[in-house]
Amino acid sequence: MQAAVTATVTGSALGVGSELRNFQLRLGMWVFLGTVTMLFAAFSSAFMVRSAGTDWHAMPLPRILWWNTGLIMLSSVVLDYGRRCANQSRWGSAAAAVGGAGLLGLLFLLGQLDAWRQLAQAGISVPTGPFAASFYMMTGLHALHLMAALALLGWGAWRLWRGALDDEVAVRGVASLCATFWHFLGGLWLYLFAMMLLL
């Protein structure tokens, strides 16, 4: 059964080669990111509609969010370094970079959690107002997506670690898949953060 699953995931069960498989995974990722875009477009249109309400009070955001923003940008840089290492077949560095980016991502999540904690200590909870509710909701959903991406990064780091033993084309595909998802979520965070600062 496990062999069948692996064969299905890598595409060998479908008679699909590594190059094509990479294309399929990239395509699937972009289509998926399209739906995530639509999801957050819906949230942000709700955010904008709601910000016109009389009960809308923007609140100062915890300073740690700036540090988090820095962390996630840094992690994107590290991850991209890993992707380039993979292209040069430097599997050890690639795996380390992808894993490191994942650790930075984990730190980002902890930072977000701390932002929640700070707000909660200041007495700002979900029902406080529409801004607070939107903040918790959007950061929470972003974090959920990020956790999925972390899982992908973990798997990617493992594949890269075994890189030389494996199909090199496929492993590079995995690295670029990780990068696409991760950069997207980083960009999404910048967008959300900017929107919450400005509205």
Binding site: L39, A41, F43
Partner: peptide, 29 residues
Amino acid sequence: GLLAFPALTAGAVMLLFDRHLGTSFFLPA
């Protein structure tokens, strides 16, 4: 479907928030 359906996911999350977490995305005063 891929482009249109996420809007309702967002709506469902907000309505669940309104129902269980005391927010008012859809509830006027």
